[in-house]
Write a protein that binds this DNA or RNA. Structure first.
Length: 569
RNA sequence: CGAGGUGUAGCGCAGUUGGUAGCGCGCCUGCUUUGGGAGCAGGAUGUCGGGAGUUCGAGUCUCUUCACCUCGACCA
């Protein structure tokens, strides 16, 4: 392919609305163009790289025995009504009507149509198990699209669904997908980590996420380098620590704390550490008021809280509700003496504290020397806080570390959540009707592409791994006005093309510097520079990733590049 | 949804108390140049996001609306 004919609008300047490196580079290198917030076109260079990733995904899905199909992106409301998700998705779902006023949506995820398709066609255990997948556009009206294709409103997802007769079968299907995912992300050249994840709105019994380690990742991860435990911070289990100093319970004491509402203010006022306080935060969960207690320096984990109540709607309680149930201004809530129906939840850590400070449920007062059980009895004592770096690992007890990650893949054991809801049943060997056991498995293709760039760039631009590069090699004649240089460049280009290498020839009448900058920006892994020594049959071979530069003959350069491309398999 | 910010040429931006719309890069023509975003000369390109208002006159002031970005909240 000739660069002179290529639709590749590279830009010298960083687009002003791109925040992270991968987004900036995807725009600068002419990989894509924004149409609206969270909605992008892939241009030829970007689409080639995108298809590389997509094909890796497809090859590994096929190798794992999954069967590809394609569902419509536009789906009738009834499909999602049966599972209750027509309402549950809320505003995140793009909705539309046909001319007859019938309701449709643009599919945000496809558990329902897949389950329906299987329900209507599979009746016997003899036909199980199998796994279906598609690589298709998904639509979610995100409140805040961000970071280019990292969190887009239209994005491509590979979604797979497994159907098994029993749990043991699901384990096998799940493992096959797990292994396929590892191969996919290995082939994409990604440094990733597998973490335990919350099942969230998808439901189900267990799930894991494939996280690409990155400072710009939207998810927080806690991991233990000693035993290998790793979990999304939403999910990471906290274990209760022992009380620091066993102490005798002291008498409760009411302290006048005028205008002292926050933990910071309280610390300064009482000259004490936040570890001596317990904060009580009020939530409104599906219309009910819940008070949650955690140590002063801890954060409440709203995912754990939501799961505890199987909540549809969870938010901090309104100021009015806080004042009503505590009888005090916001900032003085405590566990002793609520007015009205309030469920009290205490973090397990609170249960091992003694003589701590809490709000008095009275404006401008706190209580000192408050103690668990003696002074209040929570309805439940559970793990409700968010893990922090240095906390004990729930498996081995050694301190955990934290980092950030980009979620590129997610695998779930769904169980019978959708097969029950949609009546997807089969007859087993004994003639008994049973719900199919399902799993679902997603990979964000565009997000994976962005994650690859996020892990493979330098000051000059993208540094594509050979497996996902839009073109594998580029031939750069330094002076197209020189007949020898030009001819040698053409020769190398056509030889590589014949050998099956995806190769560009930068035949533009530009100065060498311009061509080098563009080649680096778009990140082509292998480069052959044809310069003055072309008359002697000598060219320069250069690797983008390593910076290795070697002078060699035309034959050697061609052989070296063909060899590397063949080695890809 | 809350707070803040930005919309002027393909991209990045300037535009003073209201008075003929600018700069850099890119683009086109010519000459020169040819190993890391060259030089000279000439040239093209604008609903100043949209609408309404104030004014003799609005990119600039007022109102309104749309779009986009950031932080927060929320979230498969």
């Amino acid at each position: 392919m000739r660069v002179s004919k290529l639709f590749m609008p590279t830009q010298r300047e960083i687009p002003s609305d791109a925040e992270i490196v991968s987004h900036q580079l995807m725009l600068r290198a002419g990989l894509m163009k924004k149409i609206a917030s969270g909605i992008y076109s892939f241009l030829p260079m970007g689409y080639r790289a995108y298809r590389k990733v997509e094909n890796i995904v497809r090859e590994e899905m096929d190798r794992a025995g999954a069967q590809e199909l394609i569902m419509p992106a536009i789906l009738p409301a009834e499909v999602y009504m049966a599972s209750g998700r027509w309402d549950k998705f809320g505003q995140e779902m793009f909705r539309l009507q046909d001319r007859g006023g019938r309701q449709f949506c643009l599919g945000p995820t496809h558990e329902e149509p897949f389950t329906e398709a299987v329900r209507d066609n599979i009746k016997s255990y003899r036909q199980l198990p199998f796994t279906l997948y598609q690589i298709q556009h998904k639509y979610r009206d995100e409140k805040r699209p961000r970071f280019g294709v990292m969190r887009a409103r239209e994005f491509v997802m590979k979604d797979a669904y497994s159907f098994d007769a029993d749990e043991a079968g699901l384990d096998i299907s799940y493992k096959a997908m797990y292994e396929a995912y590892c191969r996919i992300f290995d082939r994409c050249g990604l440094d990733y980590i597998l973490v335990d994840a919350d099942s969230g709105a998808m439901g189900g019994s267990g799930s894991q996420e494939f996280m690409v380690k990155s400072l710009v990742g939207e998810d927080a991860i806690a991991y233990c380098s000693s035993c290998g435990y790793a979990a999304n911070e939403e999910k990471a289990v906290c274990i209760a620590s022992e009380p620091a100093v066993p102490a005798a319970l002291q008498e409760i004491e009411k302290i006048h704390t005028p205008h002292v509402k926050t933990i910071e203010e309280l610390m300064a006022f009482m000259k004490a550490s936040p570890k001596e306080f317990v904060k009580t935060i009020l939530y409104s969960i599906d219309g009910k008021i819940v008070a949650v207690m955690v140590r002063g320096d801890r954060e409440i984990n709203e995912t754990k809280l939501s799961n505890l109540f199987d909540a549809n709607d969870l938010a901090l309680a309104s100021f009015a509700d806080v004042e009503r149930v505590t009888g005090a201004a916001v900032g003085f809530a405590g566990p002793v003496a609520f007015k009205g129906d309030v469920e009290l939840i205490a973090d397990q850590e609170v249960a091992v504290m003694v003589n701590f400070i809490v709000g008095a449920n009275e404006t401008d007062y706190h209580l000192k020397n408050v103690n668990f059980i003696r002074d209040f009895k929570p309805a439940r004592v559970v793990d409700i806080r968010t893990i922090e770096a240095g906390d004990p690992c729930p498996v081995c007890g050694l301190p955990v570390e934290t980092c950030r990650g980009i979620e590129v893949g997610h695998i779930f054991k769904l169980g019978t959540k959708y097969s029950d809801a949609l009546n997807c049943k089969f007859l087993d060997q004994a003639g008994q009707e049973k719900s199919m056991i399902m799993g679902c498995y997603g990979i964000g293709v565009g997000r994976t592409l962005a994650a690859i760039i996020e892990q493979h760039y330098d000051a000059n631009g993208i540094v594509w791994p050979l497996a996902t590069a839009p073109y594998q090699a580029i031939v750069v004649p330094t002076n197209t006005g020189d007949e020898t240089i030009s001819a040698v460049g053409e020769d190398i280009h056509s030889r590589l093309e014949k050998a099956g290498v995806e190769v560009l020839l930068d035949d533009r009448p530009e100065r060498p510097g311009v061509k080098f900058k563009d080649a680096d920006l778009i990140g082509i892994p292998l480069r052959v520079t044809v310069g003055r020594k072309a008359v002697e049959g000598i060219v320069e071979y250069k690797e983008r990733a390593t910076g290795v530069v070697i002078e060699m003959t035309v034959e050697e350069a061609v052989a070296k590049i063909v060899g590397q491309v063949k080695a890809l398999g």
